[in-house]
Design a protein around this nucleic acid. Sequence first.
DNA 1: CGCTAAATAATGTGATCACATTAATCGTTA
DNA 2: TAACGATTAATGTGATCACATTATTTAGCG
Lengths: 225, 225
Amino acid sequence: MSNERPRFKTQQEAVYFELREAILRGKFQPGNSVTLRGVAEMLDVSLMPVRESLRRLTAERALQLLDNRRIAVPTMSESRLEEIYITRFTLESFAAEKAMANIDEAAMAKLEDINTLHNRAIAERDVENYIYLNFEFHRQIYSYSGLEVILPLIESLWLQIAPFMRMISDRFAQEGDFDESEDKHLEILEAIRKQNATRLKHLIQDDILDGVRIQQEMMGWGVSN
Amino acid sequence: MSNERPRFKTQQEAVYFELREAILRGKFQPGNSVTLRGVAEMLDVSLMPVRESLRRLTAERALQLLDNRRIAVPTMSESRLEEIYITRFTLESFAAEKAMANIDEAAMAKLEDINTLHNRAIAERDVENYIYLNFEFHRQIYSYSGLEVILPLIESLWLQIAPFMRMISDRFAQEGDFDESEDKHLEILEAIRKQNATRLKHLIQDDILDGVRIQQEMMGWGVSN
DNA sequence: CGCTAAATAATGTGATCACATTAATCGTTA
DNA sequence: TAACGATTAATGTGATCACATTATTTAGCG
């Protein structure tokens, strides 16, 4: 009779994770403003849980407080993009290396499942899932690293890049050559299977680099080395 | 006539920065719990600004939400310490390198001022200022990097390490050999003057490493390589 | 039609109250 | 004296209202 205890202890938490996933799916457009009452109405909760969630997301730089006190989805700049990606390289390849040894058969199976769904999203030009499942794939790997400090930093970077990724991916999908966006996921799985740390690190970096390359190209921004 | 406009636009902001500095001064002891009404009384504000500030600090991992819904200052573990410091090495040496070229005479003078105060704090065994001014020294350097993504990450790490630093420094000061804690600040200033990026990066790393070494030693934790 | 100014609406912030949950205290009993 | 149970206190969360500030719309005028 629905005796299951709710998934989240507080409404604030529920709202937070709801918004968080929405952001990681690219449902928030850069530059758009987010209002307390808007979110509250959409999720059918009062202002309080929304206030706290937005404060939290703002602290994680997923959202931005404008000086007119309004909340908005941050826009991307050339320098910010480069900064986000150089940090992603560093932190994520480190996390992958730490995680590798702890990835067992069950974890491997889950990774393959995620990758299957990810490929399907690409085939179906389902941009939202394409973006989200890519993050899920990486998150699943890093979750075995046992890193409790670095992981939140990585996720903060994802929250910052997701709206921009969505914008670019939409354009990319329109231009038709979306499914040519070869990711390195299969090779990553292979490197893990062979426990080849050096190769894994490079592949993670390449996988991330592929993304930023496309984004820089689309924006006509200088390609980072 | 007190026509000056207040330093912060909102009470929440004022409370946040007040708490933030207190944390960076090591006024919060690891494991201690922080209550809404306690802070509200101490700063003579209502619950609302405090709620939002604590939510913010929690998102930055300066504070921790326990599963009994209570808020506490996180405790340190051997692995967490190592994680924080390896990330500090990476991000801070990068930031220092980016900043170096932009540091002019005025900035240099300010750095020397901070360092003077820092040395005085050491001489006077003023642990709070010793910790805080060390952060200020580093922050001042990195502020010229123009990095808008990485700087918040670095500051989040500082907020996480500060309470633990204070604990160790107190012990260290008691044991008497506090002023033997030779920092690398003078050499750092020299490297900046000579615009020697490689040396600066190494010095930043050494400076950070000196700190963690003492901490690990005090705790009887394995020294990282 | 274009521009300005007044009026109206919308928004984030703060205050206060209510409440469920958890912690602390105290009295009782063995 | 120690341990258990009941009672009281404290705490974070949520709801609602008020308000100052900022946006948006509307009206008026040239």
